[in-house]
Write a protein that binds this DNA or RNA. Sequence first.
DNA 1: TCACGATAGTTGACAAGTCAACCATCGTGT
DNA 2: ACACGATGGTTGACTTGTCAACTATCGTGA
Lengths: 156, 156
Amino acid sequence: MDDLQAFGIEAGKGRHYEEAFYGLILVYTALFDRIAKYLDGFGLTPAKMNVLMVIKHQGGAEGLSQRDIGSRLMVTASNMTRLLEKLEREKLVERSSRAGDKRVKVIRVSARGSRLLDSAWPGYMKTMKGLMDRLSQAEQKQLAGLMFRWTRELKR
Amino acid sequence: MDDLQAFGIEAGKGRHYEEAFYGLILVYTALFDRIAKYLDGFGLTPAKMNVLMVIKHQGGAEGLSQRDIGSRLMVTASNMTRLLEKLEREKLVERSSRAGDKRVKVIRVSARGSRLLDSAWPGYMKTMKGLMDRLSQAEQKQLAGLMFRWTRELKR
DNA sequence: TCACGATAGTTGACAAGTCAACCATCGTGT
DNA sequence: ACACGATGGTTGACTTGTCAACTATCGTGA
């Protein structure tokens, strides 16, 4: 736990909240890193993967507006614009104005995007599971419960 | 838990690892956000705050090299260069070449940086504690333990 | 009907992070 | 003594993310 010392924290000294806080940061960055490395093999990034997943799983035939995607992923509108521009340039996604409301842009996954998503998906899940499986089943369950409670508390 | 649905995850369906994974992301971003908002009042960001904390708490009289700081915070060398350039421009930090090894730049907190850090610190800790205290003491301890084990596992 | 407020998206300017290529300096082995 | 590899830092090009200011369109109330 030398990592925590970086922040001036000594482990095992009471002060669980500091250990938990900095531990969480360390874990998050490690997880993010591994996932990013995996996705890199497909020319994808976590952000792009998330966008593709949301559109494909929740878009149905009608597609989603940029706003819809953004709010589901907690990504700002301006960030969505640029993310989708790139995805469009890479032909993974199609953007068209909605008939009846020219303000909204309807986003759909292209055939190419869909194929890419399908090919990246199993390994993505496997990578994630592999990372999580460093914890026991019981610990995973514990963590899931903690995170669930915590997000709800943080939202008030 | 509607947030998790964004990723195509249903809560409470076994699959604790998915809930834990996405829950962790949600929590992390929420925490980061609040901390960033607090620090903004001081013209600081989490990254800058971390750098100042490390230099002040571990730098002693001799200061630290950029490499030292970077490795303690898991920040890349190139990122350190730019971070420290900004901190230097804002006169929060002083950079000088080490006598005896011109490659190394020795970093010290300036008087101004030190004052700023002192003024931001108590509220920073209070904000962090406030965020953590949405969980009970027992949960914090549990979480700290989990994170401790997990970081170690992830490092192999 | 039309003015005004709300909604969807875009743009500019910035922070923080990455990687790869690069320069300067150091230290060591022969 | 010096060549070469290791070390410390910088730079360029890029991604993801933010906020604030902006445009365009839509819908509603008077």
